[in-house]
Nucleic acid binder design. Structure first.
Lengths: 119, 119
DNA sequence: TATCTATATTGACGGATGTCGATATGTGGT
DNA sequence: ACCACATATCGACATCCGTCAATATAGATA
C-alpha cells in the first residue's frame, strides 16, 4: 500500500500534476505546490541549491557551504533543513561530515509544473 | 540607453541568467531571482496565475477571479498587484473592468532558470 | 573517559507577509 | 450632478520567517 500524503515530501506530493498554465489549479493542489516553491523562494536557499548542484560529484559538505556565506552556522543548517524537508536536497552522513546532493528529478519536476513545458 | 536595473520588473532583471543547477549562483543573482520566486510562492497566487492562464482568450477579469476564492476583494487585488509587479501578469483596463493576462515568456524563463533545461 | 570537531536544535528577536474592514478612485448610466 | 459598481489603497492585526547566540548531539581520537 502507498504511504499517506502526509508522509510525503512536498516534491513527492506534487509529482503528479499538470503544468500550472494549462488547467485551473484546485485549491488543494495549490496548497501542496506552494510549500515547494516557498522552499526555493529565498536567496540563500537558491544559492545553496546551486552550490550543491554545481559542486564536484554533485555533492557538497556542510563545511564547504558554510564558508560561502556571511551567515552563522545555525542559519545555514536551518536553510539546509528546509530544502531537505521539501525533498529538494538529500542528506547523507559520512563520519563527522554531512553531505547534501540535489534530488535529481525534483527541480525539473517543479520547472515542468511551472509551465516550462508549454513554452 | 538601457533602463536602470531598478526600473525593471523581477522577470526582466533575470532573463539573462543560466540555470541554477549548472553554475554557482552569485549572491547578487540570487537576490534578483528570489523575489520572482517569492511572487509565486503562495497558493492563492499560484491559483490566480493558473486561472488567468487557462481562462478563455488567456485573460481574465478581476470580477471572475474574486468569485473563485473565499477571500475579500482587497486581498485578491493585493495578490494581483504582487504578480503584476513581479512581471508575471500584465494589466489592461477596459471600461470599468480590469483584465489580467500572463506574461507569456515569464513563467517559462523562470522554469528554465530553475533547471528544467538540465533534466 | 575526556576532549575536540562538525552539525543540529532551541529560544528569542525584528521584520516581512496575508488578511481584513474601511475608504478612496475611477467609470458608466440616469 | 448624482448614483451604482468595479477595483485599488490604507491601516491594523496576527502570524510566519530569517537570523543570531547559546546549547545539545554525535563521531573521531587520544
Amino acid at each position: 500500500m502507498s504511504k499517506s500524503l502526509l508522509e510525503l515530501t512536498p516534491v513527492q506530493a506534487v509529482a503528479c500534476c499538470s503544468p500550472v498554465t494549462r488547467d485551473p489549479l484546485s485549491a488543494e493542489a495549490a496548497e501542496r505546490i506552494a510549500p515547494l516553491v516557498k522552499a526555493i523562494a529565498d536567496p540563500v536557499r537558491l544559492r545553496l541549491l546551486s552550490l550543491v548542484s554545481s559542486h564536484a560529484d554533485g555533492e557538497a559538505c556542510v563545511c564547504d557551504l558554510n564558508d560561502a556565506f556571511d551567515l552563522s552556522q545555525p542559519t545555514i543548517s536551518h536553510h539546509l533543513k528546509l530544502l531537505h524537508e521539501a525533498g529538494l536536497l538529500e542528506r547523507e552522513k559520512r563520519g563527522v561530515w554531512v553531505y547534501y546532493r540535489v534530488n535529481a528529478g525534483a527541480l525539473s519536476d517543479l520547472a515542468t509544473l511551472l509551465g516550462g513545458v508549454t513554452a
